[in-house]
Design a protein around this nucleic acid. Structure first.
Lengths: 259, 259
DNA sequence: GGCTCGTCGG
DNA sequence: CCGACGAGCC
């Protein structure tokens, strides 16, 4: 059977709930990981998703961050604590088991600027993911790591790699720590199916007409261990949210598996 | 020739600039007085109105209040200072001469509550208008006084006069000071043409479904001295802004003159 | 309770 | 450019 997974930085689930429900009804994914839900758990619209056949797990906070996992299948929450590298109370990591697959949804800190203390925090945060994976899983298990990584891994993942090398989101230090986590046992599932560049999932709102000029970044990812990556059939970007009335600065990243 | 005058509490000219431009192109008034522009003079969109053939005078401040006068004809600013009764820096009075008519545009303080010090301030503010008129004009001249008066003068100007008598906006003390200014030499031009009640220009956001249930107030007015009132041919409420995408809590009040 | 502004964050 | 929020007003 096929298993369709997706990730989307929704930038407020309350502002884009209708968009999301329409998208779910159309796309029928088996798994959706959301970042930046920006809603406290008490206000998460559980019932709206139940009404269309989706179960939800969520970890939110006030105003910022917030992650959620949606599926029409049973969801079992697993360890969702990064440990000391994470600011306490920051809702950036949520993990679950669904259909025998371990799913880890992260909203990695954006990092602000390489000269900022927040950048150090981002590096530590990413580095801590390796310990997290070691603590909870083995590379032989089917583990999916999805989310907004806030890092474009390769030059082909960014519209102007020469100019932007060294900027936050495309910085050698970020590449180093991310490679360190990848070595634990991950493959970039999107890259496996789309070896060519020019596929983006994020356009900075602050860049004037950045979408029309396609000044994007591929910072949302679907990574998997061999056990699951070997079963991936395709992976693609779904630009639907950019065409709608209330566009997001991110798009959906998707992958399909034979499980 | 005819002269069409209008007044509108726009509650942010930046939020409703498009609405206003469309309305001007359709309605082609010779004069429009705006209240609650909520914009500092440096940010007033002068050019957008020039582009459609309208000259502007404006007096704004940060965040609150702000008045403006628009006309396709020449506008000459005249004394726009109420004096000591006004809080310094509060942009609530703007006056001009256009086509030989003196135009006084006011955004009278709302008054909050009859028990509040702001209510006393409102009464003093209104009372000071009589001195202002005496200082600058004579009752024999054509003087138009337009704006958001924040007072419904008569029982027929409010949907539930029995219950609301004594509330802010329909209080005997307000009626007394307003009558005192009226005695200087004004007629209520709207009332001259619409002697029946039930015409409102304002619906409180806080009243549930107040618009649909027509729980309104007539607090926006066009008053004139005899010289101009005698030339008025009609006066009416234009509810257009309530039917649009971004409704306002006020509507346009209008009058037409033969001059 | 609805609305706008200014601020902060991305 | 677009979210959430808090303040102030009505």
């Amino acid at each position: 059977m096929t298993f369709k997974a997706a990730s989307f930085n929704i930038n407020s689930i309350r502002a884009r709930k209708e968009l999301l429900i329409n998208w779910l009804l159309q796309s029928k994914p088996d798994l959706l990981c959301l970042q930046e839900t920006k809603v406290m758990d008490k206000d998460f619209p559980v019932q709206d998703f139940r009404d269309i056949g989706y179960n939800t797990l969520f970890k939110g906070q006030k105003s910022y961050n917030g992650v959620a996992i949606l599926s029409p299948h049973d969801l079992t929450r697993v360890d969702s604590d990064l440990g000391e590298a994470a600011e306490p109370g920051e809702a950036r990591l949520l993990a679950a088991q669904v259909k025998g697959i371990y799913v880890v949804n992260t909203y990695i800190p954006q990092g602000q600027d390489p000269k900022s203390p927040k950048f150090i925090h981002k590096l530590n945060w990413i580095r801590a993911m390796r310990d997290y994976f070691t603590r909870n899983f083995t590379p032989e298990q089917p583990v999916l790591w999805l989310g907004d990584f806030n890092v474009a891994p390769e030059p082909i993942d960014i519209h102007d790699p020469k100019r932007l090398l060294g900027h936050v989101g495309f910085h050698p230090e970020e590449h180093k720590v991310l490679a360190h986590v990848k070595e634990w046992g991950f493959q970039d599932i999107f890259r496996k199916h789309k070896p060519e560049g020019g596929h983006y999932t994020f356009w900075d709102y602050r860049v004037p007409r950045g979408v029309e000029r396609n000044l994007g970044w591929r910072v949302d990812h679907i990574w998997g261990t061999r056990a699951i990556a070997d079963r991936s059939m395709d992976s693609w970007v779904d630009i639907e949210p950019r065409k709608l009335e209330k566009p997001s600065d991110h798009t959906f990243i998707m992958a399909e598996f034979n499980i």
